Amino acid sequence: MSDTPRAWPLGFRTTLIKAILYVLGIGAIAQGAFLEALYLPDVRFSELGFTELTQTLTLAVSCGLLLYVRHILKVWPTVTLLLLAFIGASLVREQDAFLDQYIADDTWQIIVALIVVPSLAWVVMQRRRFLDEFAHYSNSFSFGLFTAGVLTTYIFSRLYGRQDFWRAVLQDHFVREFKDVAEEVVELLGYSLILVAMIELMLLARRVHKARLAHA
């Protein structure tokens, strides 16, 4: 079977190059947040600031990679559909301020429901295929990174950004901006991990696709 792990090996050189690129990418994001704080006082950490816009960009690129894997490479269509629904919903959620301002309050919730509900229904209908695909994906580096990104974004950043925590740390010097910056930057880190996971998924899917072609 062409989707078995023996079709997926990577050499040390390739792994080292990717690791260096990922380190540089994460470093660039951290530096971008620093420069935003220094030179963009009017929009820093707002919807028009570097951090928020980069969050949107990472999610949009992740969605694009999943569309490529699902519709061009045609690898693991049910797993990638579920991932696409999750990340697409996150992308819509990040635009809540714009949607509330220019369309209507809570518009993002309706759009998220239109994305998530049909996707979940399809995956449930195709649950045997999903479980077979997930057995492969769950043993990949991409899945580990994706899990780390989700935990960082949706668990750690929320707890780390709690107002009670920052009031305890800063006490009489508490300013809400500290709390918001901490939460948004950690959230960006989580989205960056998800992006790296989708890059790894795309690279893995390309190898699986080539293995299928060779086998055929």
Rank of each mutant, 00 (worst) to 15 (best):
Phe34Ala: 10
Glu133Asp: 06
Lys179His: 01
Val150Arg: 04
Val175Lys: 02
Val61Glu: 06
Gly27Arg: 02
Ala60Ile: 11
Val169Trp: 01
Leu53Ala: 07
Ala19Ile: 05
Tyr102Ile: 04
Val150Gly: 08
Gly161Gln: 14
Ile111Ser: 09
His215Tyr: 08
Gln171Tyr: 08
Glu183Leu: 01
Phe34Trp: 10
Ser142Asp: 12
Ala197Gly: 11
Pro9Gln: 12
Ala28Pro: 01
Phe86Ser: 13
Gln163Leu: 04
Ala168Asp: 15
Tyr39Cys: 07
Pro5Cys: 05
Gly149Ser: 11
Phe45Cys: 01
Tyr160Glu: 06
Asp42Arg: 08
Tyr39Ile: 07
Lys179Asn: 10
Thr54Ser: 13
Leu16Val: 13
Val69Trp: 11
Leu21Ile: 10
Ala89Pro: 02
Leu24Gln: 06
Val61Tyr: 07
Tyr39Glu: 12
Glu187Gly: 09
Pro118Leu: 05
Ser138Phe: 03
Leu38Trp: 09
Leu83Trp: 05
Lys18Ser: 15
Arg158Gln: 14
Met202Tyr: 12
Arg158Ala: 06
Pro77Ala: 02
Leu213Val: 09
Lys210Asn: 09
Thr107Leu: 03
Leu38Ala: 14
Arg128Gln: 09
Leu57His: 06
Ala30His: 05
Leu67Trp: 10
Gly11Tyr: 03
Leu99Gln: 14
Ala97Met: 12
Ile110Gln: 05
Val150Cys: 12
Ala113Thr: 09
Val123Glu: 04
Val185Ile: 04
Ser119Lys: 06
Leu114Gly: 05
Glu47Ser: 06
Ser138Trp: 00
Ile87Glu: 07
Ile20His: 13
Thr56Tyr: 14
Pro118Lys: 05
Arg158Asn: 11
Tyr191Gly: 06
Arg207Lys: 13
Gly144Cys: 02
Leu40Asp: 15
Thr80Pro: 00
Thr147Cys: 07
Leu188Ile: 03
Gly161Asp: 14
Ile72Trp: 13
Ala28Asp: 00
Val123Asn: 06
Leu188Lys: 02
Phe86Tyr: 13
Leu114Ile: 04
Asp172Ser: 10
Thr58Phe: 15
Ala197Ser: 15
Val175Tyr: 02
Gln31Arg: 07
Pro9Phe: 09
Arg93Gly: 07
Arg13Val: 12
Phe130Gly: 04
Leu10Ala: 11
Arg212Asn: 14
Ala104Cys: 03
Gln171Pro: 00
Leu59Gly: 04
Arg70Pro: 01
Leu204Met: 15
Leu59Tyr: 03
Ile155Pro: 03
Leu99Met: 15
Glu184Gln: 14
Leu66Val: 14
Val117Asn: 01
Pro77Cys: 05
Arg70Leu: 02
Ser46Val: 04
Leu201Glu: 12
Leu53Val: 13
Ile26Phe: 15
Ala135Thr: 04
Gly32Tyr: 07
Asp42Thr: 03
Leu189Phe: 06
Phe174Ala: 04
Phe50Thr: 03
Phe143Gln: 09
Phe134Asp: 02
Ala97Phe: 07
Ser157Gly: 10
Gln101Asp: 15
Asp3Val: 03
Phe141Pro: 00
Asp172Thr: 11
Ala30Val: 11
Glu133Cys: 08
Val124Leu: 12
Gln31Glu: 08
Arg167Thr: 01
Ile17Phe: 09
Glu52Tyr: 08
Gly144Phe: 03
Phe134Cys: 00
Tyr68Leu: 14
Thr147Lys: 03
